[in-house]
Amino acid sequence: MPSILNARLLSAVMLAALLLCALGAPVENEPTDSPAGDLSGEEEEQPSSAPSLSKTAFWDLIVNLIEGLTKEFQDELQATDSSLNNYKISSLPANCPGSNSNKEACLRWMAEGLETYMVFLKYVEREYPNTSSLSDIRQFSGYLMSQIKQEMSKPGKIKVLTSSEKEQLLKDIDHPHAFNRKMTALSILRQLRDFLCDGKRKIHQGEMSKYQKNDRNNSQL
């Protein structure tokens, strides 16, 4: 009988497959991806426009996929939470710097952070090449980033990483030993989950604060 975790992962994978089919995209890894050993990140895979699905749908789908994979990889490596703390990557985004009411700042932070994570997800895919869910995570992250940009009033202010900056990010985390690389890849997934959960919470708080402010202004009219 499958465990709750396996059932949750299976549900997320099935939803991912259905979404990809609905979008006219192949369920398997795209043949246009760079080879597993090429981590330059020069090829942009962000869609020109995201499908008409809510941010929440993409957030929940990505988080569910990550939670299933991290448990699987952590069991495989016999890694503890404390041991993974030694593999945290400082170049990944910290918590959202904007206040609860500054939705634009948090959206910009999310878009720039997702671009950085899209680079690091290539690294994760190299270390776990036979895991199709990783390409789904990267693709859905691209859709989420597109939706976030559409909500911004000034998306042109988003800082875009250059090819050399992407290469340097990957060089900084490279390691000669396979175990350390896999632990680093697992840490990337865990940090991405925390990043998404923090961003979703902060943007929701900003939206609620805006609604409450509008309600107060309307009540004073």
Score class of each variant (00 low, 15 high):
197 C>L: 15
168 Q>R: 12
41 G>I: 00
162 T>C: 08
75 D>T: 07
202 K>G: 02
221 L>R: 09
201 R>N: 12
1 M>D: 11
73 F>M: 06
125 E>Y: 11
114 L>E: 09
48 S>T: 06
188 I>M: 08
91 S>N: 10
211 Y>W: 07
178 A>F: 12
92 L>Y: 13
58 F>Q: 01
114 L>P: 05
167 E>H: 14
172 D>C: 00
109 W>N: 04
118 M>S: 14
20 L>K: 13
24 G>M: 07
133 S>V: 07
113 G>T: 03
53 L>I: 07
156 G>W: 15
139 Q>C: 13
121 L>P: 08
179 F>A: 02
147 Q>T: 05
58 F>E: 03
152 M>Y: 14
21 C>L: 12
27 V>N: 10
104 E>K: 01
21 C>T: 09
114 L>F: 11
183 M>N: 06
150 Q>W: 09
165 E>L: 05
31 P>E: 03
202 K>L: 06
64 N>C: 14
84 L>G: 01
219 S>F: 14
49 S>W: 12
126 R>E: 11
60 D>N: 09
165 E>M: 11
218 N>M: 09
219 S>G: 02
51 P>Q: 06
29 N>P: 15
136 D>R: 02
174 D>T: 09
97 P>T: 03
98 G>H: 09
167 E>T: 10
176 P>L: 12
107 L>E: 04
59 W>C: 02
193 R>Y: 08
71 K>M: 05
80 T>Q: 05
35 P>D: 13
183 M>E: 03
195 F>V: 00
69 L>Y: 02
36 A>E: 07
220 Q>D: 15
17 A>Y: 08
72 E>F: 12
184 T>S: 06
18 L>W: 12
105 A>K: 10
200 K>F: 14
63 V>I: 15
5 L>H: 03
